[in-house]
Amino acid sequence: MCLGIPGEVVEVLPDRPELARVKVSGVRRAINVGLLADDPPRPGDWVLIHVGFALSKIDEEEARAVLRFLEEIGQAYTDEVDALKQSMIE
């Protein structure tokens, strides 16, 4: 099962504006935000992440609701967070 998981943008990398560092359930990773070039995220924004790419911006209320749902479904969410921990976009 492939999921999109919400993450909070912590910073946009100054030397690589197509990358942002996000926080997902305590994990911090660089993700590609190039798909959101028309409305780039800023620190504090929430994005929906899949396979290291931000697919869309979402509001904090929606992000928290999705996180609660994902935590309830268990293993699929755990697998997605584990995959995020192992991903490295440089």
Rank of each mutant, 00 (worst) to 15 (best):
M1D: 02
C2I: 09
C2L: 10
C2D: 15
L3K: 04
L3M: 02
L3D: 00
G4V: 03
G4Q: 08
I5T: 02
I5W: 00
I5N: 00
I5P: 00
P6S: 02
P6G: 03
E8Y: 01
E8K: 09
V9R: 04
V9N: 06
V10A: 04
V10F: 01
V10H: 01
V10Y: 05
V10S: 03
E11I: 01
E11C: 01
E11D: 07
V12I: 06
L13W: 08
P14S: 10
P14A: 15
P14D: 12
D15G: 06
D15T: 13
D15N: 10
P17C: 06
P17L: 07
P17A: 11
E18A: 15
E18D: 15
L19P: 02
L19D: 01
R21Y: 11
V22T: 09
V22C: 08
V24Q: 02
V24A: 02
S25V: 00
S25P: 03
G26M: 08
G26N: 13
V27Y: 08
R29Y: 02
R29T: 04
R29D: 02
A30Y: 12
I31G: 07
N32Y: 10
N32S: 11
V33S: 00
V33R: 03
V33M: 02
G34V: 09
G34D: 09
L36R: 05
L36D: 08
A37Q: 08
D39V: 08
D39G: 07
P41E: 07
P41N: 08
P41Q: 10
P41M: 13
R42D: 12
G44F: 00
G44Y: 00
G44D: 03
D45E: 09
D45F: 03
D45M: 04
W46F: 14
V47H: 13
L48N: 10
L48C: 04
L48E: 10
I49Q: 06
I49L: 10
I49Y: 02
I49H: 05
H50I: 04
V51Q: 12
G52C: 10
G52Q: 09
G52F: 08
G52K: 12
F53R: 14
F53M: 11
A54N: 06
A54Q: 03
L55S: 03
K57S: 11
D59T: 13
E60N: 08
E61P: 07
E62I: 11
A63Q: 04
R64E: 14
R64Y: 07
R64Q: 14
A65H: 05
A65I: 07
A65D: 15
A65W: 01
V66I: 15
V66C: 06
L67I: 15
R68L: 13
R68T: 15
E71S: 05
E72P: 03
E72G: 15
I73K: 09
G74M: 11
G74Q: 07
Q75N: 15
A76V: 12
A76G: 06
A76Y: 07
A76P: 07
Y77P: 04
T78W: 08
T78D: 13
D79N: 14
E80P: 01
E80A: 12
V81R: 00
V81P: 00
D82I: 01
D82K: 09
A83V: 05
K85L: 00
K85P: 02
K85R: 12
Q86L: 05
S87P: 00
M88T: 12
M88P: 03
I89G: 04
I89K: 08
